[in-house]
């Protein structure tokens, strides 16, 4: 217990040391932490309005930072690739919310602006979108462990509730439930702030050092992701059951986008 409180005492100081002077500012970090906390609650714990879907998270984070378009540029490929992640019969639960809030926040707060991968001839800009999407994928995967730890803590706290089955103190149950809600909020917010610092200080500067061949591959990534995501969803529907409807939608929208719009 004492070592844990020691960690908690050292953590704020370490965090303070990791923040470059005013970049990102404390205000921005706390605001993004708050947003990530609220959206993490929405993901499973509270309401489940789907504002925690990657595309909405990207746009909302971008809007909070003053550039929703950059949020859309990163959020769209992530949304398409995660479209098949459904909470049914699946044991993997990534934490895309914190990773995405941090990624969009890091890009916008660094003064960069991103545009649609289909709307720019600049391969470096598309490669940067790819670089940030890789970061979201890696950090979201790491978030799976955090979420599993949180759920194990829920179980231990739930066992604590057995005392109420003996003494009838109803308030304890409410307190445990509120503690679980607060933990989710804290996990989302703190993870986003830490990732924001990592991305801003290490990940984004590393992009300039990447070899040309990696940059070229990263430029191709956002163009390949939608295909994989859509393919994953078609597999979810079942190819035999869905091909006619999917093919019909594809032909119509291809023709409309190509020849009408």
């Amino acid at each position: 217990m004492s070592s844990l409180s020691g960690v908690w005492a050292v953590l704020p100081a370490a965090l303070l040391a990791a923040v470059p002077a005013g970049d990102p500012s404390w205000n921005s970090m706390l605001l993004l932490g708050l947003l990530a906390g609220l959206l993490s609650l929405d993901e499973t714990a509270l309401m489940q309005t789907w504002f925690s879907q990657p595309l909405a998270v990207g746009v909302l984070t971008g809007a909070v930072c003053g550039d929703p378009a950059s949020g859309l540029a990163i959020g769209l490929p992530v949304q398409l690739i995660l479209a098949g992640n459904l909470p049914v019969g699946q044991s993997f639960t990534g934490d895309s919310v914190s990773a995405l809030v941090a990624a969009v926040g890091a890009v916008v707060l660094s003064g960069r602006g991103l545009v649609s991968v289909f709307g720019t001839p600049d391969l470096t800009e598309i490669a940067l979108v790819g670089w940030m999407v890789v970061a979201v994928g890696l950090f979201s995967s790491a978030g799976h462990l955090m979420i599993q730890m949180e759920r194990r803590a829920h179980f231990l706290w739930m066992l604590e509730g057995h005392r109420t089955l003996r003494d009838g103190r109803l308030r304890r149950m409410e307190a445990i439930h509120a503690r679980c809600l607060f933990t989710t909020f804290l996990r989302g917010g703190a993870t986003a702030i830490i990732l924001l610092l990592v991305l801003r200080r290490l990940w984004l500067p590393a992009f300039a050092q990447l070899p040309a061949v990696i940059v070229a591959a990263l430029a191709m990534l956002p163009l390949l992701l939608p295909g994989l995501g859509i393919g994953n969803l078609i597999e979810r529907y079942g190819l035999r059951a869905s091909w006619l409807w999917v093919a019909g939608g594809t032909v119509v929208s291809f023709a409309v986008t190509r020849f009408v719009l």
Binding site: L80, V117, F118, G119, P121, L123, I126, A219, M220, L223, P226, G227, I230, L233, I234, Y237, S242, W245, V246, A247, G248, G249, T250, V251, V252, S253, F254, A255, T257, R258
Partner: peptide, 22 residues
């Protein structure tokens, strides 16, 4: 399913029309 197809179709149209130097 229809919306999935529509997204796929739009994506293919945008990729072929993107003018990217690849």
């Amino acid at each position: 399913m229809i919306l999935t197809g529509m997204t796929a179709g739009t994506y293919l149209a945008l990729v072929t029309d993107s003018g990217l130097p690849v």
